[in-house]
């Protein structure tokens, strides 16, 4: 009882701190915090697939891009309403994830990783080549942030970063909450059953492939949400979003932060972005620096940051999962 109270108190404090960011810090930090939240949404959804179900996808950049381009195209041709745009982005990502997932979920392990990678790169090349729709390698530019209209009348401008920040924060909190509920739901329990022993899950009467496909689509939708928000943040959608090196980011931050907890991928994402900023401050060669850090992390701490922290305090993760 008290433990859960402490947890709520910590969560409330964190939320307050996040809400206070635009008031107490400079523009750049506000921007970086938004980037951390976007990567957090991306990775938390991704970890439903990797940490919860045990499937490693290397193609989630495709769904991220589907979200971004979905929002961009909808905004340009239908209406710039950002809430509808985000919804369309999520839907577009889910549809692409359904198509890709249908092909891929028969496989597991490395075969699944390769297939998702290949499918993701197909989306990349489509985005790159279909200039007339996507703007090709220049990206889809000029996405605007129209005000949000709520309950018919209330208009909330999100044009400035300090305003848009709360738009992102709202979705971030929503996404983390949904991911949390999925992890402790019956659906989530079945997913961890699939991770632990797929064959036995079939003998529990579970259509394993359908569950795999469902969680693939769900995590694709999270990626689409992150992509749509990034399109609004940067006012463009770029082919790079679908590139496999971008698909590697959620894998990376999930492993960095730890697979077995809800917040692991978010911590990993914050670490990733902070490190990129720090390395870039000193050298142009941030990829080299990051590669070296990654080597060290993999060779030295395999449980990720959260795992290391948990080991330090000698307690098991409180969340569902392993």
């Amino acid at each position: 009882m008290t433990e859960s109270r402490i947890r709520y108190a910590v969560l409330a404090a964190l939320l307050l701190a996040l809400a206070a960011v635009p008031y107490v810090s400079g523009k750049f930090f506000v921007y970086l915090t938004m980037r951390v939240m976007l990567l957090g949404i991306f990775a938390v959804g991704f970890n439903l697939l990797l940490g919860q179900t045990g499937l490693l996808s290397f193609g989630h950049g495709a769904f991220y891009a589907a979200g971004a381009y979905g929002l961009g195209l909808f905004g340009a041709y239908v209406t710039p309403n950002p809430l509808l745009g985000v919804a369309v982005g999520i839907a577009a990502a889910a549809v692409v994830a359904l198509l890709v997932g249908y092909l891929c979920v028969r496989h597991t392990e490395i075969y699944f990783a390769m297939l998702t990678l290949a499918c993701g790169m197909m989306v990349f090349s489509f985005v790159w080549n279909a200039r007339s729709i996507t703007g090709g390698d220049d990206g889809f530019i000029g996405i605007m942030r129209a005000p949000v209209t709520l309950f018919g009348g209330l208009r909330l401008p999100i044009g400035k970063d300090s305003q848009f920040y709360y738009f992102v924060l709202a979705f971030f909190v929503l996404a983390v909450w949904v991911a949390h509920r999925i992890r402790i739901s019956p659906f989530g329990l079945v997913l961890s059953g699939i991770r632990e022993n797929a064959r036995r899950t079939e003998y529990a009467g579970i259509p394993v492939r359908k569950y795999r496909l469902s969680v693939f689509v769900v995590s694709g939708a999270f990626a689409g949400l992150a992509g749509a928000l990034e399109a609004l943040l940067e006012s463009n959608a770029r082919p790079f979003m679908a590139h496999w090196t971008h698909s590697a980011e959620p894998v990376l931050v999930s492993l960095l932060g730890g697979l077995s907890s809800l917040f692991g991928p978010i911590v990993g994402g914050a670490f990733f972005i902070a490190m990129r900023e720090i390395i870039q401050r000193y050298t142009e060669n941030w990829m080299l620096g990051f590669g070296v850090v990654l080597l060290v992390v993999i060779m030295a701490f395999r449980g990720g940051i959260m795992g290391a922290v948990e080991n330090l305090f000698g307690r098991r993760s409180a969340g569902a999962g392993r």
Binding site: I184, S185, P186, F187, V190, I206
Partner: peptide, 10 residues
């Protein structure tokens, strides 16, 4: 019930 994504097992 196994499909429910938002309710709690507990």
């Amino acid at each position: 019930r196994a499909w429910r994504p938002i309710t709690r097992v507990s």
